[in-house]
Amino acid sequence: MELVNLRERGGLAAPAAAWFHDRWGIPARSYRESMDACLAGAGAVPQWYLALQEGRIIGGAGVIENDFHLRRDLRPNLCALWVEEGFRRRGVAGALLAHACADMARLGCPTLYLVTEHTSFYERYGWQFLCMVPEADSPCLLRMYRHRT
Rank of each mutant, 00 (worst) to 15 (best):
E123S: 13
R72D: 14
F129W: 10
L74Q: 06
C131S: 13
P15Y: 10
H69N: 10
N5C: 11
L114D: 05
P134G: 06
A13V: 08
F68E: 12
W48S: 09
A102N: 10
T111W: 04
S138F: 10
S138L: 11
L142S: 07
G59F: 02
F121H: 09
G126C: 11
L70Q: 12
R29G: 14
M144A: 15
R90M: 15
A17H: 00
R71A: 15
Y49G: 02
E65L: 08
G59T: 09
D137V: 05
P15V: 06
L39M: 04
H21L: 03
V4T: 12
D36V: 11
H21M: 09
R124M: 10
G43C: 08
E123C: 05
T111M: 07
R90I: 04
C140M: 15
L97N: 00
A136K: 13
C109P: 00
L52T: 14
D103F: 01
G55A: 05
C109L: 06
W48Y: 14
G10W: 01
Y145T: 04
Q128F: 05
V115R: 03
G10S: 06
W24Q: 10
R23D: 14
C79A: 15
A14F: 12
R56Q: 14
D73H: 02
S34C: 14
L78H: 02
S30F: 07
L70A: 15
L3E: 01
L112A: 06
R75H: 08
F121L: 15
M1Q: 07
T149C: 09
G25V: 04
V4Y: 05
E84K: 02
Y31D: 05
A40E: 13
A100K: 02
T149I: 04
C109A: 13
G108C: 10
A61W: 00
G25F: 12
Y49W: 11
G60W: 00
R7W: 01
E123H: 12
W82E: 11
A18S: 15
A14K: 14
R148S: 11
L141I: 05
A93G: 13
A93H: 03
L107C: 07
L78F: 06
R146I: 07
G126W: 01
M132K: 11
V45K: 00
L107G: 00
Y122A: 01
D36N: 14
G10P: 00
P139A: 10
V115Q: 03
R90W: 01
N5Q: 14
W24E: 10
Y125P: 00
G55C: 11
S34W: 03
A98K: 14
L141F: 11
L114N: 03
L96H: 03
G91K: 03
Q128E: 15
H21R: 09
H99N: 03
L130W: 08
C131K: 12
S34V: 03
L6Y: 03
L112W: 01
L141N: 08
V92K: 04
E33G: 05
D137H: 14
G25A: 12
M144F: 04
P76T: 00
G60V: 05
L74R: 06
R72W: 02
R32H: 14
H69P: 02
I57K: 15
V4P: 04
M1K: 07
